[in-house]
């Protein structure tokens, strides 16, 4: 891939973020977000119900009663904004094998946190280790675990671009 072919984020005249030059695999990963962020998606809810009081059952109950519903609400609100934007992913006018997608400024935080939710859920589901995340993936992805690692990397790439764009 030549340098100018890399996916990048540009600011539109209207002030939105335009994710451009999205390669096919990354587009595929983005199009899977509705399925990966669905309420019943494996691993998603496990992360929301965790408690910051692992050794205090009383505080844990209090947290579950008061904080978990708020976390679920925050997750769903962010997810709904992301899904709206994913619907509008479209081919690049001059390189139709690539895609582009516009993200309103007000949706940026929702994107960044939703991508974190999916990545962490996949990591938990497949019990991914730090060393594995740093290794080179095999040329042919055979196992669901390999495919999950690829997905975590691709969505991490998107997340990194958006974090930098919003900085």
């Amino acid at each position: 891939m030549r340098r100018h072919d890399y996916p990048r984020v540009e600011k539109t005249k209207g002030g939105a973020f335009l994710l451009r030059n999205i390669p096919p695999l990354m587009a595929l990963a983005i199009r899977r977000l509705p399925e990966l962020l669905a309420d019943g998606a494996p691993g998603i809810r496990d992360r929301l119900v965790g408690t910051p009081y692992p050794d205090d059952s009383e505080a844990m109950k209090h947290w579950e009663k008061h904080a978990v519903p708020e976390l679920e609400h925050l997750f769903r609100s962010a997810r709904d904004l992301v899904l709206k934007d994913v619907e509008a992913i479209a081919p690049e006018p001059r390189a139709t094998e690539r895609s582009r997608m516009e993200i309103p400024v007000s949706h940026l935080a929702a994107w960044i946190s939703s991508l974190a939710a999916v990545r962490v859920a996949l990591g938990g589901l497949h019990d991914l280790k730090e060393e594995e995340m740093e290794e080179q993936l095999p040329a042919v992805l055979v196992t669901p675990r390999d495919r999950a690692i690829l997905l975590v990397h691709l969505l991490g790439w998107v997340q990194g671009l958006l974090v930098e764009a919003g900085a």
């Binding site: 935080a109 960044i112 974190a116 990545r119 962490v120 996949l122 990591g123 991914l128 280790k129 730090e130 594995e132 995340m133 975590v152 991490g156 997340q159 990194g160 974090v163 930098e164 919003g166 900085a167």
Partner: peptide, 16 residues
């Protein structure tokens, strides 16, 4: 620590 979240993301979260 967790094996998934990117360093740039974690820094971003702490700043925000």
């Amino acid at each position: 620590d967790d094996p998934i979240n990117l360093m740039v993301y974690v820094t971003h979260v702490f700043m925000k």
